[in-house]
Design a protein around this nucleic acid. Sequence first.
DNA 1: ATTATTTATTGACAAATGTCAACAGCGTTT
DNA 2: AAACGCTGTTGACATTTGTCAATAAATAAT
Lengths: 198, 198
Amino acid sequence: MHHTKTLLEPLLVMLRAIEPISEALELALINSFVVVEVQKNAMLLKEGDVCKNLWFLANGLLRSYHNIGEKEITSRIMFTSHIVISPGSFFTQTPATESIDALANCTLAKITFDQLQIIYQKFPEFNYHTRLITEQYFYNNEQRLYMLRKHDAISKYLYFLENYENFMRQIPQKYIASFLNITPETLSRTRSKLSKIK
Amino acid sequence: MHHTKTLLEPLLVMLRAIEPISEALELALINSFVVVEVQKNAMLLKEGDVCKNLWFLANGLLRSYHNIGEKEITSRIMFTSHIVISPGSFFTQTPATESIDALANCTLAKITFDQLQIIYQKFPEFNYHTRLITEQYFYNNEQRLYMLRKHDAISKYLYFLENYENFMRQIPQKYIASFLNITPETLSRTRSKLSKIK
DNA sequence: ATTATTTATTGACAAATGTCAACAGCGTTT
DNA sequence: AAACGCTGTTGACATTTGTCAATAAATAAT
């Protein structure tokens, strides 16, 4: 059994690194987050539902994806210490266009949108922290866009190796392929080409 | 000759819509922004330089792009009322990996990173506004990512027509092609295919 | 108005990737 | 140990897109 406080520690460290937070805010956060455990393959969010929670992924691996026709297109892969939401849905509290599920057993701490708004009201200074965090995630997205704009599979994969590989060890290749927006077959061939060169 | 106050009005309207702002903050903003006029083809930011300004594009059209080999890859197209920065560079005040230049004569209002920090210090409540704005731009990026992940040129172009066309009228096709991450030739062919079907 | 320059269209061909299918490797279940 | 399911690899082929080149159309310059 996990205590919320212990699980949240890495998040609190991240927040304090931005700017120290008051005891009261820290307590409010600890009291508002709830621990959730989900099994591998469990679904955290289903396309069409409103993303009412923000999760802190204390441990595990998640994947978000769109259903296009019969295919699933991975939009993001999220690992330990990630803050997890479906952005469009959470920010505007409208139905999500993507689903999120667990690639491994996960331990999370969640807070609802409403509870978060209460915290913002009581602790307006918290907007500073989340502004910086949002900026950081925003910038990560720019990098993703940059990767997807690469012309061919090799460039994408090399960029991936340089920038994401550390986070992405032990992830099934088919999800990496989807992350790079190529088929598993093409990724497999790209990898074998590169290993022959080297 | 333009007055800062008049030019900033659409920005102020946007901010007030999020939450009313104090007279003092409004005045601080008006006094911190400086009007800039740039001619078509002028360069606002050059790859390698630190993005020290945040611009509000009061009128005109801008394009950001990466130089890859001999080619320019358009990352964003920004039109009237857009807030313009090079995210990675501005947020962290490190050298930019992209350039920004004017596709048309533009009227802008700019504020430096340092001046903006002063405003945040004096008016911490302003973090609330910019958090929401950053969230919105973040979500726009997610949509861009979704578009780029579409399998073929037709899907991308159709998605573009539904979601961006209004903003993008009168933009040279070659930039739209670059925005969709396809060549101008492919875009031209895609358009002619679609017009024959219809 | 006329020229010059840039942009868009079209064709022919090459290159890259997707699709479909067979099979190998691996771990899980029974 | 055998059967099963899932993932990854490899091959053959179809499809899509990129590349290069020629030309037309549209813009800008003189």
